[in-house]
Write a protein that binds this DNA or RNA. Structure first.
Lengths: 106, 106
DNA sequence: TATATAAATCAAAAAAAGTTGATTTATATA
DNA sequence: TATATAAATCAACTTTTTTTGATTTATATA
């Protein structure tokens, strides 16, 4: 779901759905902060417990918001043992948002 | 509120607020359709009753959604007698979204 | 001035989104 | 195998957003 390559091939209604979902995922300060924290991290990748510390949010809340970002393909999850790391799908965001905006949010 | 010129001068927290509000305004299919209808109209401007017809939505519902778009400066209202016309603030949207996205939504 | 039309606003109800603590699942290690 | 840690999921609850019909405000016209 929500893969960039396909957006240009979508009909009008499906494109509206795509953008509605994208904007919805981005329309929340916690989620914008998650993106921001990951982009500031040395490896451009953080696990849930890293974010728990940095943003002072509890685990279940973070999982909820991370899932929203993964669902629209803004974040890409990577499992390393017991840890789940998340990195930003810059291509996807850059496809949707202006350079100016990308600079500000990541 | 939400004037482009100022976004680049904002601190990080205020910038996040700005984008959260922007994405929130865009994160709704009715509001995306409003933008789309206005952009397709000959004068790039429609009044509430035009939209009522085109989108088959009732007046109070439209007023609610139009207000959301005006609040973040995506739409600019213009009063002509009894009619309230709305036009798109393309500059504001182009500042936030990519060319690709703008092409798709208006 | 009285009447009609456009559209904003309001308050109540309905629907959707977010939060919370507990439970479950999966992996790593003693 | 038993235990510990990371993180997803779940169901109950809270908060926010949206919808609805009624009312109000503003303008135009007979």
């Amino acid at each position: 779901m929500e893969l960039i390559k396909k957006v240009n091939e979508l009909g009008e209604d499906e494109a509206l759905d795509f953008y509605e979902n994208m904007f919805n995922a981005l329309a929340d300060k916690i989620r914008l902060k998650i993106i921001n924290e990951i982009s500031k991290s040395p490896n451009k990748s953080l696990c849930v417990c890293d974010l728990e510390e940095k943003l002072e949010l509890k685990q279940s809340k973070l999982s909820y918001h991370l899932k929203k970002l993964v669902n629209v393909n803004i974040l890409i999850p990577e499992k390393h043992g017991t840890w789940n790391y998340y990195k930003i799908n810059e291509e996807q965001i850059q496809f949707v948002l202006s350079e100016d905006t990308c600079c500000k949010i990541f």
